[in-house]
Amino acid sequence: MGGSNVIFDPLHNSCCDFKVDKNSELSKFSSILECMRRIPIKKALTDQRPVYKSHVEHF
């Protein structure tokens, strides 16, 4: 197989931001956000880790 033609958009690798003061629309989901703060999924969604092109290609 040849090289990869994957285009990396900065938004694809951004983390979630659950701060209501930055996005007032999030106030509609306050009960869901409270639940997410209590479970490990919050770390997976908000933790910023580098994604290397070589890892994506290997995957």
Rank of each mutant, 00 (worst) to 15 (best):
Asp21His: 02
Val51Arg: 11
Lys42His: 13
Lys42Cys: 13
Ala44Val: 09
Ile39Pro: 01
Met36Phe: 14
Phe8Asn: 04
Asp47Pro: 00
Tyr52Asn: 12
Val20Asp: 07
Gly2Tyr: 11
Cys35Ile: 09
Val56Arg: 09
Pro40Met: 04
Val20Phe: 07
Asn13Thr: 14
Glu34Ser: 05
Ser30Met: 00
Phe18Lys: 07
Ile32Ser: 02
Phe8Ile: 12
Ser27Asp: 06
Ser14Asn: 07
Pro50Glu: 11
Val51Trp: 10
Lys42Met: 11
Val51Ser: 09
His12Arg: 08
Pro50Arg: 09
Met1Cys: 12
His55Cys: 06
Lys19Thr: 04
Asp47Trp: 04
Ser31Phe: 00
Gly3His: 10
Ser14Lys: 12
Ser4Gly: 06
Pro50Tyr: 08
Gly2Glu: 14
Pro40Gln: 06
Arg37Val: 01
Cys35His: 09
Cys35Asp: 10
Ser4Tyr: 08
Pro10Leu: 03
Val56Met: 13
Ile41Gly: 00
Phe59Asn: 12
Ala44Met: 10
Ile41Gln: 05
Arg37Gly: 04
Arg38Glu: 14
Asp47Arg: 10
His55Arg: 08
Lys43Pro: 00
Asp17Met: 06
Ile7Thr: 11
Asp9Gly: 03
Gly3Phe: 09
Ser27Trp: 00
Ser24Gln: 05
Lys42Trp: 05
Glu57Pro: 01
Asn23Tyr: 07
Ser54Tyr: 09
Gln48Tyr: 14
Arg49Gln: 15
Ser30Ile: 02
Lys28Ala: 09
Leu33Ala: 02
Arg37Lys: 10
Ile41Met: 06
Lys22His: 15
Val51Thr: 14
Lys53Thr: 12
Gln48Met: 14
Arg49Cys: 14
Ile32Gly: 00
Glu34Trp: 00
Ile32Lys: 02
Leu33Gln: 01
Met36Glu: 07
Phe8Arg: 06
Ser24Lys: 05
Lys28Asp: 09
Ala44Pro: 00
Asp21Ser: 09
Phe18Trp: 10
Lys53Asn: 08
Lys22Ser: 13
Asp17Glu: 13
Val20Leu: 07
Asn23Cys: 04
Met1His: 10
Val20Asn: 04
Glu25Ser: 03
Leu11Val: 14
Cys16Thr: 02
Phe29Glu: 05
His12Phe: 11
Val56Ser: 05
Lys53Arg: 15
Val51Pro: 02
Lys19Cys: 02
Ser4Glu: 09
Glu25Lys: 02
Arg49Pro: 03
Met1Val: 14
Leu11Asn: 15
Asp47Phe: 08
Cys35Tyr: 10
Leu45Lys: 10
Pro40Cys: 06
Asp17Gly: 04
Ser14Arg: 11
Phe18Arg: 05
Tyr52Leu: 15
His55Lys: 08
Ile32Asp: 03
Leu26Arg: 01
Ser31Gln: 04
Phe59Thr: 11
Val51Lys: 07
Pro10His: 02
Asp47Met: 12
Asn5Ser: 12
Ser14Ile: 06
Val56Asn: 03
Met36Asn: 06
Glu25His: 01
Gly2Gln: 12
Lys28Cys: 04
Leu33Trp: 01
Leu33Pro: 02
Val20Lys: 12
